[in-house]
Design a protein around this nucleic acid. Structure first.
Lengths: 157, 157
DNA sequence: ATTAAAATTGTAATCAATACAGTTTATGTG
DNA sequence: CACATAAACTGTATTGATTACAATTTTAAT
């Protein structure tokens, strides 16, 4: 099958190919067959700091992959999560976001404009003896508040 | 309107009355009219460490308040959250849980049995200069893993 | 080329949450 | 007490994210 690459420069093709290879071998390491859809979904996830929703991923990729199905996006993301190469963010109350950055970091969400921003924290900083004997696999830290821009725009809420 | 209190002892009536008064004045402080339903929902929320879902609250309370509507439970909880006397826990992927404990603590969820357990952490421990200029209103910390019991029951995953 | 397994697709179903209009309850006034 | 107004509550319909599932397409191997 062929995809429209008419608007892509040679350099971008090289980069894409390079990305695809890197992502492909990452998937193979997890025993995930690196299909075109899977590579593109992971590539999209890795290239966005916005931690996209299923709908955002689908809407963006279906323009270039007209046969893409939203079910495939769901299936693929669930597969990534099970393989620990992506994580679920429950920072929204109604919609799931996904993050391919598995390093230790938290997420700040502005309650006014909705932007989500990463922040670093020292992983053992939260540790507590309340969880002696518990095996902790994943730590999710969500902050909610106002970003600097929204504080400036509406000082007297 | 009358409610069935036949199975409640005098001591429990006194305690209930006491709880109701305490919760009632708490609600009044937030300009929330302390209706019977609101008091009972807050009382249920405060008495459970399990951080119940809407369905759990409704199912438990409708036995004693036959006219209760699930919409009222939704409305009441949203009202509590807006008034900052309860918080939303997005620790489940599909269902919202609620917590009336507004003190600084995190939530551990066992991925095997599903139990949710509170744990303390020092609030400023996570702080980072990545969020200079950001106004943080709420911090939610979720851990996922295995509780001691489930580790014992299934040592080899 | 043939076949089996895996991946993908599209539609239908599920279910938490909300919208909304109608009803009941609470509160205040004459 | 009667009445009026606002608030709270109820029940049903709707929304929308997610999953279930059967059918189709693609991939990989012989």
């Amino acid at each position: 099958m062929w995809y429209n690459v008419s608007s892509i420069t040679d350099k971008e093709v090289i980069n894409m190919s390079s990305n695809a290879e890197i992502i492909g071998s990452m998937l193979l390491k997890e025993n995930i067959k690196p299909s075109y859809a899977r590579i593109r979904i992971m590539e999209y996830l890795m290239s966005r700091k916005s931690h996209p929703t299923v709908d955002e991923i689908y809407t963006a990729l279906v323009k270039e992959i007209p046969t893409l199905s939203k079910t495939t996006v769901y299936n693929t993301l669930n597969l990534f999560v099970k393989s620990n190469i992506a994580r679920v963010l429950t920072i929204e109350e109604n919609e799931t976001r996904y993050d391919a950055d598995m390093s230790c970091h938290g997420h700040f969400k502005c309650e006014s404009c909705g932007v989500v921003r990463d922040f670093c924290f020292r992983s053992p900083a939260i540790d507590t003896n309340d969880l002696d004997g518990f095996l902790v696999r994943e730590k999710n830290v969500y902050y909610y508040g106002l970003c600097p821009e929204c504080q400036a725009n509406k000082p007297a809420n």
